[in-house]
Simulated scan of single mutants.
Amino acid sequence: MDVTTWYLEQTSPGDLVAAKPPRLEIEVVRAEIPNPEFSRFLYTAVGGDWHWTDRLAWSYGRWTALLERPGFETWVAWHRGTPAGFAELEAHPEGEVEITSFGLLPWAIGQGLGGHLLHTGTARAWDLASRWPGLPGTRRVWLHTCTLDGPHALANYRARGFRVYQEKLNEPGDRPEGPTPGPWPGARG
């Protein structure tokens, strides 16, 4: 199967479009203490069904180094004390902030949470410099997604005001068959 990757951006806080209120009560909170175990859990729990594998071989030290970088933040959506999803933000030079990982845990998909979490995470990308003295103000927020991600990912990004600035057809790729690499293979059923 051919894999298409879309690179999307916002160039002004005014680009951000609010989402409908979520159907469930959600609180989105910054995980302020760098915690490799929790971050790896979120990465595998959200990305397992989409075969996110880039970070699976990372050492504890590599996770720690990422999480301790100035301008790196993890925002977690919680419902009744249970994690529902997360958004990772990473500051880059010259006021650019990348949403490096974003998604919902399998139980939270289809609950109307994705738009709210993306809106909140993107708003936090726009005001990231207010929490990190010495970083320049955000002038651009960007991310990428591909045909291997969740079927509603691209539509959610566009609905929140992100615009495609590059589309790339990659070498043919296959979605691996068999168990997913998440913490509980096949959790979504």
Rank of each mutant, 00 (worst) to 15 (best):
N170Q: 14
T5F: 08
A65I: 06
P34Q: 02
G103C: 08
H116V: 08
S39A: 15
Y60A: 06
V46K: 08
R175N: 02
P93T: 05
G112N: 00
M1F: 09
T147K: 06
A65L: 00
T120R: 11
T180A: 10
R163L: 01
W132T: 10
D49E: 15
H51V: 10
G14K: 00
G71F: 05
P36S: 03
T53F: 10
P136L: 10
W63C: 03
T100H: 04
P179S: 08
L118P: 01
T4W: 05
P106I: 02
R55H: 10
Y7K: 00
R175M: 11
A159L: 03
P22C: 09
A31G: 07
G121Y: 06
F162K: 01
E167C: 10
I33Y: 02
G14H: 02
E73R: 02
L148K: 10
W6F: 09
L117D: 02
E94W: 01
F102T: 10
S101I: 02
R175Q: 05
F86M: 15
H79M: 07
T82A: 12
H92I: 06
V17S: 01
R62K: 12
G121T: 05
V164M: 07
E27Y: 01
W132G: 00
W142C: 01
A18C: 05
R69S: 09
A129T: 09
T53A: 13
L118R: 00
A155M: 06
A155Q: 14
A45W: 13
P36Q: 08
T120E: 15
T11P: 01
I26H: 07
L89D: 08
R131M: 00
G161Y: 02
P181M: 02
